[in-house]
Computed example of a mutant assay.
Amino acid sequence: MRAASTGALLAGALVLSGSALTATAPAAYAAEARVEIKKVSVNGGKAIVFGTSRTESFTISVTASDDSGINPNGHRFFGIDREVGDDYWTYHGTPTCTASSATTSTCKLTVRLESDIDLPRNTLAGPWNVDVQLTAKDGDYYGETYGTHPVQRRSTLSVNASPEPVTKGKTITVTGKLARANWDRYIYAGYTNQSVRLQFRPAGSNTYTTVKTLKSDSTGNLKTTVTAASDGYWRWNFAGTSTTPAVVAAGDYVDVR
């Protein structure tokens, strides 16, 4: 099954800088067409991360120039898309262009998911193509897949350290769960077989130290024991993967007596 979705469009007011986008190498084409892409920023340089709600949004911002200037009413198209096997998804639309000089404009497209705009399939998490098409006032044209940008499934991580309080030298049991958004079912489900660090911060300190590393089980659960030595905070720390962002649980304080 091939599925596609188009985001609703609103003009973005925020100027974005930086980008996690990986450029392919459209320079030769751009030079021949005389429309030059100066800068591309997707989601302010951060990965696009979708949870399970249809209230997400992101912005694509492109600065381009031509000796005749960019046509604010000409053919304009920005989009991101990915295809894996039979699964395909795209978010795209027409950007709004604002000139900063006679030759240079910044064009922006803000995509907002709404109640009738679905999330992609789980299989599509990863690098998405970033497509840019712009026309100059004299008819020069740029139309390329400029590069790729990461789209990830939002992650959650919980922690509980007990008993509280605990006698010094006794055992503390630390549990938790690593989960991530399941776009196929609109729920959060356990992220299995992932390395997660157990960390400790003594009371009065600002620094966490890794005590041990575990792998989440078949349901995303984490469980281990440590010896109570001093007051402090216990937390789980997940470094993330190409399809799932890093996440850190809030520290759980244990009083050692």
Results as ranks from 00 to 15, higher is better:
E114A: 12
A11T: 15
D138L: 07
G79H: 03
R54P: 09
A179D: 09
P165H: 08
A249T: 00
Y29C: 08
G169T: 08
S41Y: 09
G251H: 02
P120Q: 15
L134S: 06
V247F: 04
A27L: 00
V35C: 04
P163R: 13
N182D: 15
I37K: 02
A30L: 06
I80A: 03
L14I: 13
L198M: 14
G7K: 08
A30W: 05
T104N: 02
N221V: 02
A179E: 11
T6S: 15
V49D: 08
R112N: 03
L109F: 12
V254L: 02
R2H: 14
L21A: 14
D252I: 03
V130A: 06
K108I: 15
W128K: 04
G45R: 03
A249N: 01
H75A: 07
G190A: 07
R76K: 07
D184M: 10
G232A: 04
S100A: 00
A28W: 06
N193S: 08
A161Q: 05
A31C: 12
T94C: 00
H75G: 04
D255H: 15
R76H: 03
G7R: 05
Y91I: 11
T219H: 02
V247E: 03
P95D: 01
T98L: 07
A189Q: 08
E114H: 09
T90E: 01
V151K: 07
I172H: 11
Q133N: 14
S61T: 13
D217P: 10
T22N: 06
S61N: 15
R180Y: 04
S230D: 15
D116H: 03
A64F: 03
V62T: 10
E164L: 09
E164N: 10
G190M: 05
K38L: 12
A179C: 14
L124P: 07
R76E: 09
F200L: 04
A102M: 09
Y233W: 09
K39I: 14
S65Y: 02
P165K: 06
V15Y: 07
V84Q: 01
N129C: 10
G251Y: 03
R153D: 02
W236T: 00
G51V: 10
G232T: 06
S68F: 01
P95W: 00
D67K: 10
D67V: 13
A3N: 14
T6F: 14
Y141D: 05
H149C: 14
V174R: 01
Y146K: 02
K38E: 10
T98G: 04
G44R: 04
S105M: 07
S115H: 02
V42I: 14
D255N: 14
V130R: 01
A136S: 01
D116R: 06
T55E: 13
R82W: 05
Y253I: 11
A125R: 04
Y91R: 07
A229T: 13
T241D: 12
G176R: 07
G79M: 12
G45N: 04
P127I: 13
V151H: 06
A33K: 11
A33M: 07
P245W: 10
T96P: 05
G12R: 14
D131Q: 15
G169C: 10
P26Q: 06
K215S: 12
I80L: 04
E164V: 05
Q133P: 11
A181F: 00
R235Q: 00
I80S: 01
I37Q: 01
D66I: 13
R82F: 08
A30Q: 13
H92P: 02
S218L: 02
Y29M: 12
S105W: 09
T96C: 06
Y141H: 08
